[in-house]
């Protein structure tokens, strides 16, 4: 049996909102250590890797490994029925064909229960764990979201170049061109505003703006985003959870 209780429904809401426009359905793999998901979008350009560790939950138990096939649009509708501050418990029997979703209002004496029909999803898993990294940038997630939105007004591609002491984001299209350069900065009073850049090799990569638009839907999950880049390899965009992460692997564009 699986039972996981979130202190606030808002966390699961944010996770599902960040995933549902990229993949319509995916398997949630539940073990005694927590819940993980790997899913690839239909065009096989963007991969989502989610880990919700056991410690994220107020209470967690999973007696036997369970795979829950979940339609994210339907899941989003049901979890949208709870208030952000409610306790949210997900519950499934070992051979369940539904997922129980229970909201508890912390003030009123009110409990709401829903059942989501589970799906049988056949999906392959990609080996993404052994990637090397040439450059790592950590910056405020809201800043990264604004850069992606601003550059998307110019072009369907965003070029990222990283040198020893700066990262440059630039786009060029029919109406013109633009660029944003960021440099490392330590803000002691507001550590969430700090920017770090570490570099083994200079980077010059281009990514599709429409996929970046999907990635930045995770902005509300974390104040920071970490971008790991390697020449001629997918970019990794990581939003940390209180215990775990939501990562996106985005295949780069290349010149013919």
């Amino acid at each position: 049996m699986l039972e996981g209780k979130f202190e606030e429904a808002s966390l699961l809401k944010k996770i599902v909102e960040a995933m549902k426009d990229c993949v319509s359905s995916c398997n949630f793999n539940c073990t005694e250590n927590g819940i993980s998901v790997q899913a690839v979008d239909n065009s096989r350009v963007l991969l989502i890797s989610l880990l919700i560790e056991k410690d994220t939950f107020e209470e967690y138990r999973c007696d036997r490994n369970i795979t829950l096939g979940i339609g994210l649009g339907s899941f989003s509708k049901i979890i949208g029925n709870g208030a952000n501050s409610d306790y949210l418990t997900i519950q499934a029997e070992d051979d369940a064909d539904t997922l129980g979703i229970i909201f508890e209002d912390k003030v009123k004496d009110k409990i709401s229960e829903y059942n989501l029909k589970l799906l049988d999803i056949d999906a392959d898993l990609l080996e993404v764990d052994a990637m090397e990294t040439d450059a790592t940038i950590t910056l405020p997630s809201a800043d990264f979201a604004k850069i992606c939105k601003d550059m998307k007004t110019l072009s369907e591609s965003l070029q990222i170049t990283v040198t020893k002491d700066s990262a440059k984001f630039q786009s060029a299209g029919e109406i013109g061109s633009g660029s944003v350069v960021i440099k490392p900065k330590t803000d002691i009073d507001h550590p969430e505003e700090s920017i770090t850049i570490s570099l083994d090799k200079p980077i010059d990569l281009s990514f599709g703006s429409k996929y970046l638009s999907d990635i930045i839907k995770a902005t509300s999950l974390s104040q920071k985003v970490t971008i790991k880049l390697t020449e001629d390899s997918p970019g990794v965009f990581e939003y940390k959870l209180p215990s775990g992460y939501l990562r996106f692997y985005l295949a780069p564009k290349f010149d013919e």
Binding site: R44, S157, S206, P234, A251, K253, E256
Partner: peptide
Amino acid sequence: TGTQGRLDKFFVVK
């Protein structure tokens, strides 16, 4: 503005 790559070019199936 370049050709979009696919993940299958970079990662093998587990």
